[in-house]
Amino acid sequence: MADRPDDPNDPIDPFPTDFPEPPPSRFPPVGEEAASIAGVAADPVDPPSDWNAGADAHDLPLGTKRPGRWKALGQLAFPPPPPADEEVLAARDRRWTSRVILIVAAFMLIFNGASIQNWARQQAPNWFTVTVQQVADVWMTQVSQLGADKPRQGIRETYQDAREARFPGQGPA
């Protein structure tokens, strides 16, 4: 019987036992649940204890490899980005190519400075070519102190020896 008209008819259970299904947590425990959230299929149910009695190694289940705990946590915190689009890939390839070309140019500038010197000496003298020649001379002096002209010289000397080789009894060219 109710003392007041607005009292509920049924007394409130102080310790309820029947709860509705709670919503999925946004922060599940690390482990199997994390792996399933990260998009990795969970392993099938455990096989019976005698499952391998007559099994061949080739028949073993090839379930998807589960990522490690830390990797799963990492994937949870920092999900892998979606695949890059065409434009991003193209820009990446262009940058890579440009780096290769710049490295080649720098390499040649250091180890093949003699070519610039030779080129400048072959040009008709004018303000530009004389300036280039002077800069090239200074540059060659600097890089030769570091020994950067040695590889080119070494190859060239070996090559010249090969060029000058003659058959037995053959006169010089």
């Binding site: 490295i103 720098a106 390499f107 040649m108 180890f111 093949n112 590889p151 190859i155 090559y159």
Partner: peptide, 11 residues
């Protein structure tokens, strides 16, 4: 590629 260029340039 730089080493290959250098080889050719030296020869």
């Amino acid at each position: 590629v730089g080493a290959a260029f250098l080889l050719v340039e030296a020869m």
